[in-house]
């Protein structure tokens, strides 16, 4: 027997609320962010060397960046090579930053949320781990330069007193590993907190039940925490992937003098330099084209992440949908609705 309230629920379509709830986001996004964003795509197909009245050049910018240029075409060589150097650098740095960061963050998040690990000062540790993230990148770069700089007066060289000072910043792998380290150092707290919030969103009674049932920490993790954390993990994977591929600050600032270290120069740094390098004759076209390529790479990898995690989610959802349709059909036929 349906009550009045239930009848109301049945007749009301909730779809419009979906639109209402997401409306503010889209209004604001369209006003402030959409045109600048579209401009990136427009600029990618326009000429370089001017700020206004840009002519269309089709795919020329993409060709210059992607295709192997002639031996004596220095311009194309310069742009092509530094873009690909950026791609290689970012791939290397990203792996070295991403994997340790996720592993460390996950481990810490589990420790901190594990009801059985009783330790004084849990709160203190949680606060401390996030600290590196509150300092601006410029200060971080400056600090690490004085710690690990090439100078024979840097901390590492004064402490270890090698015969020849260590040149971490100018060495290819030294600088890359340092960037990886700084990135992990700056961001593991952030990732950890995100994962912690995910774990804490899991119904506590599940953990309690597991404990009473005598499950070990490892069992609890693999049987309860990990599966339920999956959606948040997807988020973490995706955002750190995007953040990693678009890494800019530290690679851009970790050098002395005014020349960016090319062993750690990322695609985003390439984009920035082409965009801002020459005020009177900016290379907007190359810059935007490189951005679009970076966007495509990011999207492909992003889609991959989604595809990999999609399985259960999607299947379950489809099942539900089918059920809903069935139910709806049944209702159409005049079947009763009861809870």
């Amino acid at each position: 027997m349906a009550t009045a309230a239930q009848r109301r629920i049945k007749s009301v379509s909730y779809a419009k609320y979906g639109y209402i709830f997401i409306l503010p986001f889209f209004i604001v996004y369209f006003i402030f962010s959409l045109t600048p964003l579209l401009q990136t795509f427009v600029l990618a197909f326009q000429e370089n060397g001017a700020r206004t009245d840009l002519a269309w050049v089709g795919l020329d910018n993409f060709k210059t960046i992607l295709a192997k240029p002639a031996e004596n075409d220095f311009k194309a060589l310069g742009i092509h090579e530094s873009f690909w150097q950026g791609v290689i650098n970012i791939m290397i740095i990203w792996f070295g930053n991403f994997l340790p960061q996720i592993a460390l963050s996950l481990l810490l998040a589990v420790w901190f949320t594990d009801l059985r690990v009783k330790m004084p000062g849990k709160g203190f540790f949680k606060v401390v781990m996030y600290m590196p993230n509150i300092i601006t990148a410029a200060s971080v770069a400056g600090l690490f330069l004085s710690l690990f700089g090439d100078s024979s007066y840097s901390v590492i060289n004064t402490l270890l007193k090698p015969d020849e000072p260590y040149k971490i910043i100018t060495s290819v792998w030294g600088s890359r590993i340092l960037v990886m380290f700084i990135q992990v150092w700056m961001w593991f707290g952030n990732t950890m907190i995100m994962l912690m919030s995910g774990i804490q969103g899991i119904n506590e009674s599940l953990f309690e039940a597991a404990e009473i049932d005598g499950a070990t920490s490892t069992q609890t993790f693999w049987k309860i925490t990990f599966p339920l954390l999956k959606t948040i993990m997807v988020y973490t994977l995706l955002t750190s992937m995007i953040g990693g591929l678009q890494m800019f600050d530290i690679p851009y600032m970790l050098h002395t003098g005014n020349i960016v270290n090319e062993n750690i120069k990322t695609v985003a740094v390439f984009v920035y330099e082409m965009f801002h390098g020459n005020f009177a004759k900016p290379s907007f076209g190359y810059s935007a084209a490189a951005s679009v390529i970076l966007f495509v790479i990011t999207s492909i990898l992003g889609a991959l992440v989604f595809y990999v995690q999609r399985d259960k989610d999607a299947i379950e959802k489809k099942k539900k949908q089918k059920q809903a349709i069935k139910e709806w059909k049944r209702k159409q036929k005049g079947g009763g609705f009861s809870i």
Partner: peptide, 30 residues
């Protein structure tokens, strides 16, 4: 809105949000 309700543009809206998240921002300044 995206989780609780079912509506026609739900998936496109979500995909849009995901996509704009991935666009590099260095070029949008101008």
């Amino acid at each position: 809105g995206l989780v609780v309700y079912d509506f026609k543009l739900k998936d496109p809206a979500f995909v849009f949000i995901l996509a704009v998240m991935m666009v590099p921002t260095q070029v949008t300044a101008v």
